[in-house]
Structure formats: C-alpha cells, structure tokens
Measured scan of single mutants.
Amino acid sequence: WVPDSEAPNCMNCQVKFTFTKRRHHCRACGKVFCGVCCNRKCKLQYLEKEARVCVVCYETIS
C-alpha cells in the first residue's frame, strides 16, 4: 500500500493530484491512481464485495 504522501501524481498517467483530481488506491496492487486509471471493479479473493482496481490489475485478473 503506497501512502498518499508518496504519490503526488497518478502512477499510470502521471496526472497531478489536486483537490478535484483525487487519489484512488488499487485494492489489488496498492498503488495510487487517478479516477480514470483506477475505474474498474472486480471481485478479489480476500474481499466479499467487488473492489476498485486499476486498469492494469483488471486486465491481469479478468
């Protein structure tokens, strides 16, 4: 899990986070992404309901 303080930009597209461009943690890899790069949901083994995942993890999992 990457702390918010260590991620000033999206770890995929590099967009800078602001008050309106929020950070989202991928529940699969723990990296920090913008809403566009972390907009998929899928079922993870260790969680009961679907969770937010990044586009890279989504392609790997599904």
Rank of each mutant, 00 (worst) to 15 (best):
W1I: 15
W1L: 06
V2A: 02
V2D: 08
P3G: 11
P3I: 14
D4S: 04
D4R: 05
D4W: 07
A7P: 01
A7D: 06
A7H: 05
A7Q: 04
P8G: 07
P8C: 03
P8K: 10
N9Q: 10
N9D: 14
N9R: 08
N9C: 14
C10K: 00
C10M: 00
C10S: 00
C10V: 00
M11C: 10
N12M: 14
N12T: 12
C13T: 02
C13M: 01
Q14A: 12
Q14D: 10
Q14H: 13
Q14E: 15
Q14N: 13
V15A: 11
V15S: 10
V15R: 07
V15L: 11
V15I: 08
K16F: 10
K16V: 11
F17D: 02
F17I: 03
F17W: 13
T18F: 06
F19A: 15
F19C: 14
T20E: 09
T20N: 09
K21N: 13
K21L: 04
H24S: 05
H24Y: 01
H25K: 03
H25W: 04
C26I: 00
C26L: 00
R27V: 01
R27K: 04
R27G: 03
A28V: 05
C29E: 00
C29L: 01
C29D: 00
G30K: 12
G30L: 09
K31R: 13
K31S: 13
K31N: 11
V32D: 04
V32P: 03
F33M: 11
F33R: 01
C34T: 01
C34R: 01
G35P: 07
G35I: 12
V36Q: 13
V36A: 07
C37A: 00
C37I: 00
C38A: 12
C38D: 02
N39A: 07
N39S: 11
R40G: 13
K41W: 15
K41Q: 15
K41L: 14
C42F: 10
C42K: 15
K43S: 14
L44M: 06
L44I: 08
L44V: 13
Q45G: 09
Y46V: 12
L47Y: 08
K49M: 06
K49E: 07
E50A: 06
E50P: 04
E50C: 08
A51G: 10
A51P: 04
R52L: 13
R52T: 10
R52W: 04
R52K: 10
V53M: 06
V53K: 06
C54E: 02
V55H: 08
V55W: 07
V55K: 09
V55A: 14
V56E: 12
V56N: 02
Y58D: 12
Y58W: 05
Y58L: 07
E59K: 08
E59G: 11
T60R: 08
S62H: 05
